[in-house]
Computed example of a mutant assay.
Amino acid sequence: MRVGYALVSAQEQALGSQTDALRQAGCERIFEDKISGMKANKPEFEAMMGFLRKGDTIVIRKLDRLGRSTRGLIELV
């Protein structure tokens, strides 16, 4: 299953362009967080990680949606 993740850092920012791109990419489920990327606790990200099963693919619009640094991305992977 293709699982999408969208993140914006402020409540007033819109997720629309990210979620539209994720739907076009064939995501069957999309998790959305509206929270600072610097915060460690991202509820929907954590929910997505618990939802994923072997063989699933995470789809994001931009790499920085998963981590703010190369080190953070490496740790995640």
Score class of each variant (00 low, 15 high):
60 I>N: 00
3 V>F: 08
15 L>D: 00
12 E>Q: 15
35 I>W: 05
24 Q>F: 08
63 L>A: 05
76 L>T: 04
51 F>H: 14
69 S>R: 10
31 F>I: 08
14 A>P: 06
10 A>Q: 14
70 T>L: 14
43 P>W: 03
71 R>Q: 13
29 R>N: 06
37 G>R: 12
64 D>L: 00
58 I>V: 15
51 F>V: 01
24 Q>V: 11
18 Q>L: 01
3 V>C: 08
15 L>V: 15
34 K>H: 02
57 T>S: 11
38 M>Y: 13
67 G>Q: 11
58 I>S: 04
40 A>T: 09
25 A>C: 03
13 Q>G: 04
60 I>D: 02
76 L>R: 12
11 Q>L: 15
6 A>L: 03
12 E>P: 01
15 L>Q: 05
20 D>Q: 14
22 L>F: 04
36 S>D: 11
63 L>Q: 13
28 E>Y: 05
17 S>R: 11
41 N>H: 09
27 C>K: 05
54 K>H: 13
41 N>E: 12
65 R>S: 01
6 A>T: 07
15 L>I: 15
62 K>M: 01
5 Y>F: 13
65 R>N: 00
60 I>V: 15
5 Y>W: 04
27 C>E: 01
21 A>Q: 08
39 K>A: 14
23 R>L: 13
12 E>Y: 15
64 D>F: 01
45 F>H: 06
7 L>F: 02
62 K>V: 07
74 I>C: 03
51 F>N: 05
74 I>W: 03
75 E>P: 03
13 Q>A: 09
40 A>D: 11
15 L>N: 04
51 F>Y: 15
54 K>R: 10
30 I>E: 07
34 K>I: 00
51 F>Q: 02
29 R>W: 04
26 G>T: 05
72 G>Y: 06
49 M>A: 08
1 M>P: 12
41 N>M: 12
55 G>E: 03
23 R>G: 07
69 S>G: 07
74 I>Q: 06
1 M>G: 13
66 L>C: 09
53 R>N: 13
61 R>Y: 07
7 L>C: 05
62 K>I: 05
40 A>P: 05
58 I>R: 02
46 E>Q: 10
70 T>D: 04
32 E>I: 03
41 N>K: 10
36 S>I: 10
3 V>W: 03
40 A>I: 06
17 S>I: 07
52 L>N: 06
54 K>F: 08
30 I>W: 01
49 M>H: 02
2 R>F: 13
8 V>Y: 00
15 L>F: 03
45 F>T: 04
55 G>Y: 02
20 D>C: 06
33 D>T: 14
58 I>F: 02
48 M>V: 07
14 A>R: 10
77 V>T: 09
32 E>W: 07
60 I>F: 01
74 I>A: 08
16 G>L: 09
19 T>R: 10
22 L>V: 03
35 I>L: 09
